[in-house]
């Protein structure tokens, strides 16, 4: 048999089938069935009927939104400064910003917990504030990297063209630099917003007892309620697909 290049993809296809397609199929089956294996929409309708689950969804969205906004506000100027700094030290600076990603995430949050505990006296006083700090700490590098990349690869002649056509500093930023960095912002947001909705480890470790979507799935599965757990996963999947579509549209227009 002659070797074809497409055959290089076989290991990945096998992986895809076993670890992605099959579990997804199982999740779908559980989502739309009840305990006796019959088709039902009850799980779904239940989610939207219960004020507890809706509150969790809203809280998750809120935590994710605040995390994303602050990550963006911190990451954008940081990435700009990193990309504009002198060539030789640039990579070292970037490394410093990204190194936290290499350290185990629970270890990082544990360290953060100790620091916050020291400052605030008792973590229970500011659960939401602490959660946001933890989330930002966790997700910031994921926002910095894609934005850094667009700044780093930004065609300098476009900036010169902007100035040549009469744009001052402020106008150059608003009408050239910002639109050029939109793809980086968009991928930064997808990298931060969706994981931030489900990442309940930070909440747990910082003693925030409020549920987010991730905690909800965890609690259903812990109670062996595969059907509702799968249903929440499916809802998250739909949200992710929705956001990706919007994001894709936005970047294409840009």
């Amino acid at each position: 048999m002659r070797f074809k290049r497409s055959m290089l993809g076989i290991p990945y296809v096998i992986f895809l089938i076993i670890f992605v397609m099959a579990p997804l199929a199982v999740v779908f089956v559980y989502t739309f069935t009840n305990g006796s294996g019959q088709f039902t929409l009850e799980n779904f309708l239940g989610f939207f009927k219960s004020s507890r689950t809706i509150a969790t969804l809203v809280y998750s969205l809120f935590v994710a939104l605040v995390t994303t906004v602050f990550c963006l506000l911190i990451a954008y100027p940081t990435a700009y400064a990193l990309a504009r700094s002198g060539f030789k030290k640039k990579n070292i600076l970037l490394l410093l910003a990204v190194i936290p990603m290499w350290i185990n995430f629970t270890l990082r949050v544990t360290a953060l917990k100790e620091v916050l505990d020291l400052v605030e006296g008792n973590l229970a006083y500011y659960p939401f504030f602490n959660t946001i700090i933890g989330q930002i700490y966790d997700f910031l590098p994921f926002m910095i990297l894609p934005i850094f990349n667009v700044f780093d690869e930004m065609d300098k002649s476009l900036l010169e063209a902007g100035r040549d056509l009469g744009a001052d500093r402020k106008s150059l930023f608003l009408s050239v630099i910002l639109p050029l960095s939109m793809p980086g912002i968009a991928s930064g947001i997808t990298m931060v917003f969706l994981p931030a909705m489900t990442n309940y480890v930070v909440l747990d470790m910082l003693y925030n007892s409020t549920y987010i979507m991730g905690s909800l799935i965890g609690s259903y599965f812990n109670a062996y309620d595969w059907h509702n757990g799968s249903m929440v996963s499916t809802i998250l999947l739909l949200i992710i697909i929705l956001f990706s579509l919007i994001g894709k549209n936005k970047t294409q227009n840009a």
Binding site: D155, S157, L158, E160, A161, G162, D164, L165, V176, P179, L180, M182, A254
Partner: peptide, 13 residues
């Protein structure tokens, strides 16, 4: 003074 740049430098967005 305005410039026509070597690689055009048109705004892609």
């Amino acid at each position: 003074i305005n410039t026509v740049f070597q690689k055009y430098a048109l705004f892609p967005f």
